[in-house]
Nucleic acid binder design. Structure first.
Length: 550
RNA sequence: AGGGGUAUCGCCAAGUUGGUAAGGCACCAGACUCUGAAUCUGGCAUUCGUUGGUUCGAGUCCAGCUACCCCUGCCA
């Protein structure tokens, strides 16, 4: 792992800082499901710790009870575990530190660095100034320490209504950095907290809580996204003001969040997709949520490999989704067994095969890892409709009238007759097999250009196959319009009734396969004893499709 | 307009004291192939947002300019 953050860590170590080891944290707010963008952060934080022989905490940044819920603390843990990271016994909640935060706030007041303000929210906003004009000081800014202490104590005790008072840091209303213009650090909100119940009426703001929770946990490197760069001066101000040792206290380092082409990563928009029913739920295989990717069939290894490959830097960038797809293909190519399935069946009758004959052919499960199974071969089979063309171009080396093709693991067949219905559509092919060409046999050596997959009509099982495409076909995720719903790909889900070889009968949810020549698939949890359901993870690379386009 | 950032191939991204542009994805060409997959081979930035300057020599130093991103929640 080499990135600029790792280099900073090494520089710190070289400078004699952080002699107790490196300690990072992944600090999600439990207000939504983790998505691929969070995976980057998870991999970075846990990866940095692992790489430096340190530790990474899981910490729920739950300082705003109005937006958070236990539903999310559960799913977040499940997703991180699934990725393969372990926080040991270091699962923390910012809310566990509310008592300490309060004490630090009191300390700040005692040092004359915080005051209770009773300006309304609107007034505070007006007093804050603008980007180009300085703010002005609140009339309550210069209360005595005693008065501030008394008021803050009473805020905690519930003597004042919600929103009537706030605690503010006393810094500089004229700072060119708006975050330093006396930021609010405590507000009154009578909301039941998912973790602390009704213990508190006042809640700390992120800016105040974050540096403290990092310091409390002895975090050395607090990694966050770019938009917090402006907040770093306050992060440092707070810890310095409270007397934390500059050589051991945490330091904040920012990196660019992940953006992916064809992918929605806005929490709000993802929620809209779920709530308005444009997808089946948070774990819909089209969703970029980790639970969605999991159901789609992406593997932890692929996602971690992806996060490693995209790197970590500070420039806003949009990674091409093909990078992610490459990573799953690479993993699944290595690890998924191969099997034959036909998505769009065309019946083929092999006229020189006996009607009652069933031949069990040996088929390898994986070109490199080996293993084998039996595949029944019968007089009537189905092939992929796409694998036959009546007026085939020279470059088409699959089945055509009078042409030959190899049936994978079986025989070379020759197309003798094309049968059509009254509408002129091809409904059946009559072919003959070359009995000397049996795969693996002594005389199987005859070379033929094309090889296609097939399935026995008598023994094939039916299966529901769900083919997915991007929710966004045009690449506009960066500046998605409000009505992005209208731009959703109407073909993001296509359901097919497919036919599949019987060897998969006893398969289980989450098992990956490569359907020969079609792509990688995974068994969906909707699968029951009498209904198989597969999701297509990703198709195979298809150079024929490119040739066809020309 | 004030502050904070970023600008290296179509997309990510290395490039640490200035010494003459890694790698991956994508793409293209070919080999191989009982998956038009995989694999293998080769190709793919005289140029680093831009303009000047310093220097024997600059993506790396200096100055100016430009573009884009973030910041005026009692959100995180």
């Amino acid at each position: 792992m080499i990135n600029f953050i790792q280099q900073e860590i090494e520089n710190d170590l070289k400078a004699g800082k952080y002699t107790n080891g490196i300690h990072t944290r992944f600090p999600p707010e439990p207000n939504g499901y983790l998505h691929i963008g969070h995976a980057k952060s998870v991999c970075l934080n846990f990866g940095l710790a692992l790489h430096n022989g340190g530790l990474c905490n899981l910490r729920f940044d739950d300082t705003n009870p109005t937006k958070e819920d236990v539903e999310f603390v559960d799913s977040i843990q499940e997703d991180i575990k699934w990725l393969g990271f372990d926080w040991g016994d270091r699962k923390f909640f910012a809310s566990d530190y509310f008592g300490k935060f309060y004490d630090y706030a009191v300390e700040l007041i005692k040092r004359g660095l915080a005051y209770v303000d009773e300006l309304s929210a609107e007034e505070i906003k007006a007093y804050r100034g603008t980007l180009t004009e300085p703010g002005k000081e609140s009339p309550y800014r210069n209360r005595t320490i005693e008065e501030n202490l008394d008021l803050f104590t009473r805020m905690k005790a519930g003597e004042f209504p919600d929103g009537s008072k706030v605690l503010r840091a006393k810094i500089d209303m004229a700072s060119p950095n708006i975050n330093m213009r006396d930021p609010v650090i405590y507000r009154i909100t009578r909301t039941t907290h998912h973790h602390t119940g009704d213990d508190w009426l006042i809640y700390p703001m992120y800016d105040f809580a974050h540096p403290l929770e990092d310091a409390i946990e002895n975090i050395t490197h607090s990694v966050c996204t770019l938009e917090f760069e402006d907040h770093r001066p306050f992060y440092d101000w707070l810890l310095d003001s409270l007397g934390f040792d500059p050589n051991s206290r945490p330091r904040q380092i920012e990196f660019a969040r992940l953006d992916l082409t064809n992918t929605i990563t806005s929490k709000r928009k993802l929620r809209q997709l779920v709530e308005e029913g444009h997808v089946r739920g948070w774990d819909d295989p089209r969703m970029p949520t980790l639970c969605g990717l999991r159901r789609r069939g992406f593997t932890p290894a692929a996602i971690k490999d992806f996060c490693e490959r995209i790197g970590v830097a500070k420039s806003n960038s949009v990674v091409d989704i093909s990078m992610l797809e490459h990573c799953v293909r690479e993993d699944l190519n290595e690890n998924a067994d191969r099997v034959m399935a036909v998505l769009d069946p065309l019946k083929v009758v092999l006229t020189n095969v006996d009607e009652n004959s069933v031949e069990y052919l040996t088929a390898e499960n994986h070109p490199k890892r080996g293993g084998s199974r039996f595949v029944p071969f019968t007089r009537e089979i189905f092939i992929e409709r796409e694998d036959f063309m009546e007026d085939a171009p020279k470059k088409f080396f699959r089945l055509k009238p009078g042409g030959e093709v190899r049936l994978k693991h079986a025989y070379i067949i020759k197309c003798e007759e094309v049968i059509k219905n009254s509408a002129g559509e091809v409904v059946e092919l009559r072919c003959t097999i070359d009995p000397t060409s049996k795969s693996g046999g002594a005389t199987a050596g005859r070379k033929i250009k094309g090889t296609i997959h097939w399935v026995s009509a008598k023994f094939a099982m039916s299966a529901e196959v769900r083919l997915y495409d991007y929710l966004l076909t045009t690449d506009a995720q960066g500046n998605l319009p409000e009505d992005f719903i209208a731009a959703l790909n109407p073909n993001s889900l296509i359901v097919k009734q497919a036919l599949i070889e019987p060897s998969v009968r006893w398969t289980g949810t989450g098992t990956h396969y490569q359907f020969l020549r079609l792509g990688y698939f995974v068994v969906d949890p909707d699968t029951t004893a009498d209904k198989l359901v597969f999701n297509r993870v990703v198709g195979l690379k298809d150079t024929w499709a490119k040739v066809k386009e020309r």
